[in-house]
Design a protein around this nucleic acid. Structure first.
Lengths: 217, 217
DNA sequence: TATAGACTGCCACTGAGTGCCATGTCAACT
DNA sequence: AGTTGACATGGCACTCAGTGGCAGTCTATA
């Protein structure tokens, strides 16, 4: 056995600055990852989520099973990954909101912004299509909901002095958006903004005792 | 009921209606199911969710792996099952609300009712304890979130003329409750009602301020 | 007692996910 | 040039989740 291999010193750790790693290796890596994802989504759409095995995915993508699990944590991740990139969209929207905004304004701004951006995303639409068709795929999609929740709350916390407010914003934003997509989808994928307005109106009606009220605690 | 049994060969349908199936077989069935659940939860609390195998669970419960999967769809189900019985609590609360209530009143009623009932449930507390400790367990717990969402929306739909309103109620209720438990848990598990009020106040602040008003307090 | 319909246990199988090692390629340094 | 280390990959073997089949056991009825 070659003992020298494992006892070699790692002196070259100087690559820790914020390098843009546009190297050829890195781009090949992204290329393979993308090929896997596209092949998988096509198979999911064609035969279903549970019915598609990892072996079939990697065979269609022209790679190996072991490589698959270096790019994705699990088969579920193929569905959850677009939702995760979604966090970037959310964070972006939060930061693009004026600093002096109230939580209510922040909420409204983020929902409107992200709803429009997401609907324009072809990958997200594909994933939503599959999730609407196969329950197991839908479950896989929300498998990281908790993590998404936490990360979003973290982003909101930078704009709130109150921690609970950040959590409330996080949950309300995700609830509003997920219902918006459902409404938009079921209403023939027409105008997103009308779906947003519809959902926000419903939310307000539930939480603000408008209309015939009887008693308030 | 005994008359129906002796009368004819259609006793299966007869026994089914009141779910009075307290036959010895059925009770043994429940007994085994319970033994599995208790053994599993203890092991999860002790060594973690992923670290516990089904073999270890059934060995501790004194049964076989095949039997385990006749009682539970999956290992995740052990965490999700209390959340599923939770639907009964929700449905109950919805039905116990006065018929002439507005959506806002219905929402408030259900959240208050279920929050108190859930906190008093020892099993639910155990599951929440484990979920707070191990992320994988938390993921397992929400694995049926979509199904829960749908069933709850269905129950709300019986009280709403509008379908979207039912969906909004469903999402808002679950969001409010899950945040309430988090707040209650992190604040030392004292008064549930104060946690409920806190969360509802935050939700209202986010959704009811359409114009620029007070900054976050 | 006998028969039907369950619950159960055991065995074998597929599929997801992981660890280990061997190979090949890229980017540096001499 | 040539070497060296880092990294991406592929193959193999393993554990564990989950399922189907078959046989044995128990219960309730006729």
């Amino acid at each position: 056995m070659l003992d020298a291999v494992q006892s070699n010193a790692r002196m070259h750790e100087a690559v820790e600055l914020g390098s843009e790693r546009t190297s050829l290796q890195a781009r090949k890596h992204e290329f393979v990852r993308d090929a896997i994802w596209v092949a998988a989504i096509d198979l999911f759409a064609e035969k279903g989520f549970e019915e598609t095995t990892v072996d079939q995915i990697v065979e269609a993508a022209g790679t190996s099973r072991r490589t698959f699990f270096r790019h994705f944590e699990s088969k579920r991740d193929l569905m959850a990954q677009p939702v995760m990139t979604f966090v970037a969209s959310l964070t972006n929207a939060i930061e693009s909101c004026p600093l002096e905004s109230t939580p209510a304004e922040l909420f409204h701004h983020v929902v409107v912004e992200v709803a429009q951006r997401t609907v324009a995303d072809a990958r997200m639409r594909k994933v939503m299509e599959i999730a609407a068709k196969y329950p197991a795929a839908r479950e896989a999609q929300v498998s990281r909901a908790a993590e998404l929740q936490d990360r979003l709350a973290e982003a909101f916390a930078k704009r709130c002095d109150n921690r609970i407010t950040a959590y409330a914003l996080s949950r309300l934003t995700l609830s509003a958006l997920s219902l918006t997509y459902r409404v938009w989808y079921s209403e023939g994928k027409q105008d997103v903004m009308s779906a947003v307005q519809h959902v926000l109106a419903e939310f307000s009606a539930v939480l603000c005792n408008s209309g015939p009220r009887k008693r308030s605690a």
